[in-house]
Amino acid sequence: MEILSVNNIKKHFGGLEVLKGTTMDVKKGTMVGLVGPNGSGKTTLLKIIFSMLKADAGNIYFKGQDITRLPPHRIYQQGLSFAFQLPRLFFRLPVMDNLILAGREQLGESLGGTLFLRPAWRRQEAQLAEKAWQLLDFLEMSSLARHMAGELSGGQRKLVEIGRALMADPAMMLLDEPAAGVNPVLGKKIYQKLRTLTGQGMTFLVVEHKLDMLLGFADWVYMIDNGKIMLSGTPREVIESPEFYTTYVGEKKDAAS
């Protein structure tokens, strides 16, 4: 069953057509990769799905519902989350607060709730904190929980960015190059962890520059070039197809080592 359907999305910036009618589907409980050379439109597509950019034409359905015109915060509330390629953390807040903020439907987040539902939101806060601790354990960052996000290294920021998108138990996550900027061993670990979550029914759409990262993890890969889906199949099928090599001809070493 499709959890996400992208239907004939078009987008141009000025005179440049970035997406020329892109269509793709993502099945529930799978990890799907979106690969393509630089400037092929993959990040643009991801941002359009999450409404951070507006599409010129086309529709996006999430869990059967048209989300094309919903603002990002509503999409998040529907159970779709987004991890930026360059981490967008709140630098003058501790790592812990960066994570807790991502919790959905917090009672203490409304004006009335903050003032009048104090015991209730404090209980909720404790639960969220517990969840954040577990995530930090997995990311091996528990000792940094009280540090300001601005003090973290680039790789650590990346981990918090991904952990944050997991905080709300989303049905589906959009990730923009989750392994970029972290060491290769940790990159693999991130993919392993995400892979185990598909077993619990979670779905991932991952933009990845290096297709080989997805081998053994992704169930399906779409290759995008010049704003159009050129190829799709299992990572193995895509990597062995001749079109893949022609597309990546300039970046062969980088893309499939």
């Binding site: 953390l89 709140f90 807040l93 607060d97 917090q106 203490g108």
Partner: peptide, 30 residues
């Protein structure tokens, strides 16, 4: 009242908006 507002989940949203409002929207806050 302001101490209560700012030292709470509500205050956490406000402080995050100060840091990066687009990222806050991407985390489900209006």
């Amino acid at each position: 009242i302001l101490q209560m507002l700012t030292n709470s989940p509500y205050g956490r949203v406000l402080r995050s908006i100060r840091e990066d409002d687009e990222a806050v929207a991407a985390l489900g806050k209006n």
